[in-house]
Write a protein that binds this DNA or RNA. Sequence first.
DNA 1: TGTACGATGACCT
DNA 2: GGTCATCGTACAT
Length: 208
Amino acid sequence: MISEENRLPLSFYEAYDTRTLAQKLLGCELVHNSPEGLTSGIIVETEAYLQDDPACHAYRKRTARTEPMYSAAGTIYVYLIYGMYQCVNIVSREDGCAEAVLIRALQPTEGIELMEMRRRFSRKNLLPGFVPKPVALRELCKGPGKLVQAMGIDRSIHNAQSLDTSSLYIRPQILGHFEIEISKRIGITQGADLLYRYTVKNNRFVSK
DNA sequence: TGTACGATGACCT
DNA sequence: GGTCATCGTACAT
C-alpha cells in the first residue's frame, strides 16, 4: 500500500486554542518522510503548555531557545532535555503567543523496522562490549524522548520549521472511535496539578 | 559560580 | 517495582 502525504493544512493548527488542539491531535498521524525512509505513528498522548503556565518554557522570559514557540501555529519546536534527549512540540495560536502541544506517545503505523533500528542503535551503544537489544513495538514511541528517536526527529533539522513544508508533518485523524482521558502532566513539579494531559483511553501505547 | 529542572536506560529487587 | 546516573538551559547569586 502506498501512503499518500495528505498533510494537514496550517488552518487546522490555527483553528483551536491550545488545550483543544492537544485533544484534536489525538488520533492524527505524525509522519516523518526522512532520507532513510518514511515512519509514522498515531498520536495517542499529548500535553498542553500555556503562556500563563509555570511549566511552559515561555512562562518567564523570551530566549533564543524558546523563540520558535512565539512563531505561528503549526511551527515545530524541538528542545533538548537532560542534555541527551529531545522532545517535539506543535506550536499553537497566533504569532507572538507562545503556547504549544507536547507530543508524548505514538502508536507506530509505518516504517516500524526503521523505527526499531533507530531506537536500538541510538542508545549508549558506543561503549565496548555493549550489545544493543531489540526494542519491543510497545516501547518504540512510548514517551516523548523515545518517539523523537524512533521518528528520526532532530532539533538541528526540524526546530522552527513549519509543518506545512517540513519533512515532518501531520495527517488527519485516522483512529476509530475513542475516548479522551484527561490527567495531570508527567514528570513536572511546576504547575503539576493542572489537568493538561490528554490520552487515548485504554490505548497500550500511552506512556503511563 | 551555583542550582533547579527534567526523560531515559541500566541495574537491581 | 525502585534507585541511580546522565547534562544543556535558564536564572539567581
